[in-house]
Design a protein around this nucleic acid. Structure first.
Length: 698
DNA sequence: GCCGGGTGTCATACT
DNA sequence: GTAGTATGACACCCG
């Protein structure tokens, strides 16, 4: 936990991130998630922001009024720009000259962790947590409010909750901090960068309206995710109730604004090393598109993790601000996302590294070329939820025996995985090989393990288009890959592989207990239940962010289907997958109908056989009855025949011989005695034949 | 481990 | 030519 705190502390760039984000023209709504430890450093950090108890408002430099140019209202202990020509002053003037830019509404949920190295408050460069609140919010005030607002104790975003931070702020008055602002040294260097940043922010604002309709759908899904995240975090908070770590949730959804001047003040008041370690590349792409209601913990998680693990210079931050621009080119976006995520992945190891050394000021990893070229927005646009989930796990880990090594391993990708071919998404063999004993190929049932795959699905609800969780696992994609679809699946495999690296019995686990695997297993079990309900196509659809449910795709009439494809801007891969899903779905239904029909035919045939057999028996019985009746009639006829002849007499009074005469019925009903010589031969033969038959039957 | 039923998918022919 | 349907065949899962 100490390492973690150190890590968080070293990630004080988060505050800078927020500040610079606002400086870039993005109003920042900062939620304070305080993992608070001894408040000593907190006090120091607060002083840096202009007041001992300014945590509630220090990060609210942009008031709700949206005014610009209130530098004069800085806290007395804050660094006041030197109007005489100090670098900060020049910077302010230059920025003011830019006019009032359009500020896209952005909210940043931040996890502010305050950490103190054991017995050395000065060495610990804790991340200052300052709860930003809106005008009607939880009592937070803008930075210009300075210590006055701080006196109200509004720094605790939880408002009336008993926050250790707030309590400590009230107890201890403001006192000078050992951290003297050094911004003046670097202000000149940042001047141009900040100017570009403001320009970029203005430029980006023009794209926001065009992207609102596009992002509305995603935002809606993210909101659902937010709800889930809030529930989970709330439970965790209530369950633990730890005074050492405070997980603060947003109390309202209003935005917090910053005064640009205040931002400069903040920037100038920060140590130079902090500025170097500051990363605006951590700014997730949704910051520029998420609306007020999108202040999810997942977002904050993303900011937090990236702020910790990612270093980006100010110029890059500017590039990151126009988050919407890349969305216009989904193909490029995909490739960018891959590259960005690769870089992000490579930087996710930083937390581990930072944790071990961040107790020293300026220990943040230096900004390397790879970091500077990282455009994680592109990735995060598609993979944000995945990151959210992962970072959420990190947050869980921080509350229960967190081991940064484990976290690093989670995101770390061995070099061997880099050899995964992007085409391996459909190659079970390669996937199996790549994932050792835990093949997690999404397609097919063999070897598929949905533990972490489904883990990312925790926040998935409804249709498949809302979230794409698999990309979050794109930790180990081949850097040379160019296909987003294949890379996604490859990432998925890799991520699963990482999951199994986190077994509790892993030899690399440190002394500190790491309860994440346990929790992850629990979550995995929960998610497995949900993920098992998903068909392969549904998982695929999620993987490609297809904004339609499989059921819709299959059941939709062809006309509606084609129109749907034309209305939505879908990549070739998405269209191909949608058509495949539709084809497979239709064929599946057809196969079901075919089998049902086949069974019906079989059953009908069986019924027919039974019926025919019964009919046969009936006919046999009827035949037997008829034959019996016929025989009876023949017997009667024979008796009658002999009776008649016994009574007949010839002219001489002698009995008539039946062998010489025969009875013959005429047409008029009269009976004649005819000699057999006169009886037609045919008739006579029939009579004889009939006699023989009757005799045989008898 | 084998077996049979159920199911999904593919290939193919047909409409 | 496209989309859908029907069906045999195959593979897989499960009891």
């Amino acid at each position: 936990m100490k390492q973690l705190k150190s890590w968080w502390s070293a990630g004080s760039g988060l505050l800078h991130l927020t500040v610079l984000l606002s400086l870039a023209g993005l109003p920042v709504d900062l939620d304070l998630y305080l993992l608070l430890s001894p408040p000593t450093l907190l006090r120091d950090e607060l002083l840096l922001l202009g007041g001992p108890a300014s945590s509630a408002h220090a990060l609210s430099p942009f008031p709700a009024s949206g005014e610009w140019g209130h530098a004069g209202r800085l806290h007395p202990k804050g660094r006041v720009p030197d109007p005489a020509g100090a670098p900060e002053g020049r910077l302010l003037r230059e920025v003011r000259a830019l006019g009032v830019p359009f500020i896209p509404r952005t909210q940043v949920d931040a996890w502010l962790v305050h950490c103190v190295a054991a017995g050395d408050a000065d060495s610990a460069h804790g991340l200052l947590g300052a709860a930003a609140s809106s005008a009607g919010g939880v009592g937070g005030a803008s930075l210009d409010g300075g210590g006055q607002a701080a006196q109200g104790g509004g720094g605790d975003p939880r408002g009336t909750q008993n926050s250790p931070l707030a309590a400590e702020e009230e107890k201890e008055p403001a006192e000078p901090t050992a951290q003297v602002p050094h911004a003046g040294e670097c202000a000149s260097e940042e001047n141009e960068v900040l100017r570009e940043k403001c320009e970029a922010a203005d430029h980006n604002s023009r794209h926001e309206e065009n992207e609102e309709s596009v992002s509305a759908r995603k935002e809606k899904s993210l909101q659902q995710n937010n709800d889930d995240e809030n529930k989970i975090d709330k439970v965790d908070w209530e369950a633990e109730g730890s005074t050492e770590s405070i997980h603060e949730r947003r109390l309202n959804g209003t935005d917090t604004s910053f005064f640009l001047e205040d931002l400069f003040q903040l920037l100038s008041s920060q140590p130079e090393n902090s500025l170097e370690g500051f990363s605006l590349g951590d700014i997730p792409p949704f910051l520029g598109t998420v609306n007020d209601g999108m202040n999810s913990s997942a977002h904050s998680n993303v900011n937090f993790s990236q702020a910790i693990s990612h270093d980006v210079n100010l110029h890059e931050a500017m590039l990151l601000c126009p988050n919407n621009t890349f969305r216009r080119d989904p193909v490029a976006r995909t490739s960018q996302a891959q590259a960005a995520f690769l870089q992000l992945t490579s930087h996710t190891i930083n937390p581990e590294q930072t944790l071990t050394v961040t107790n020293l000021p300026g220990s943040l990893p230096p900004v390397d070329n790879q970091t500077r070229t990282l455009t994680s927005q592109d990735l995060l646009y598609d993979l944000d939820i995945n990151i959210f989930d992962e970072i959420n796990l990190m947050s869980l880990a921080t509350e229960e025996g967190f081991d940064p090594m484990e976290v690093a391993q989670l995101f770390e990708e061995p070099d061997s995985d880099s050899g995964l071919s992007l085409n391996s998404s459909h190659n079970r063999t390669s996937v199996t090989k790549s994932n050792s004993s835990h093949s997690v190929y999404d397609e097919g049932a063999i070897g598929y393990n949905s533990d972490l795959d489904s883990l990312s699905h925790l926040n998935l609800e409804g249709a498949v288009g809302g979230y794409y969780t698999e990309p979050s696992k794109l930790c180990h994609v081949d850097h040379r890959s160019a296909s987003g679809f294949h890379s996604n699946l490859s990432f998925q495999h890799v991520f699963h592989n990482h999951t199994y690296h986190l077994q509790p019995s892993a030899p690399e686990s440190t002394d500190e207990s790491f309860s994440w695997p346990v929790k992850s297993q629990k979550m995995s079990r929960h998610l497995n239940d949900t993920d098992r309900n998903l068909s392969r196509d549904e998982r695929r659809a999620k993987a490609l962010h297809i904004p339609f449910s499989v059921d819709e795709i299959v059941r939709m009439p062809v006309d509606s289907f084609n129109s749907m494809l034309s209305r939505h801007y879908l990549t070739d891969l998405q269209v191909s997958l949608i058509r495949d899903i539709r084809r497979r779905g239709k064929n599946k239904v057809a196969a079901q109908n075919c089998r049902k029909r086949k069974l019906d035919i079989i059953l009908n045939l069986e019924d027919d056989v039974c019926n025919l057999q019964a009919k046969k028996e009936t006919l046999k019985r009827e035949q037997a009855q008829c034959n019996k009746a016929v025989n009876i009639m023949k017997q009667k006829l024979h008796i009658l025949y002999h009776d008649i002849f016994s009574r007949l007499r010839d002219e001489q009074g002698r009995p008539v011989n039946p062998n010489q005469y025969a009875l013959q019925c005429s047409h008029d009903g009269s009976v004649l005695i005819v000699p057999k010589e006169l009886v037609p031969s045919g008739h006579r033969k029939e009579n004889q034949k009939g006699k023989r038959k009757s005799e045989r039957r008898n």
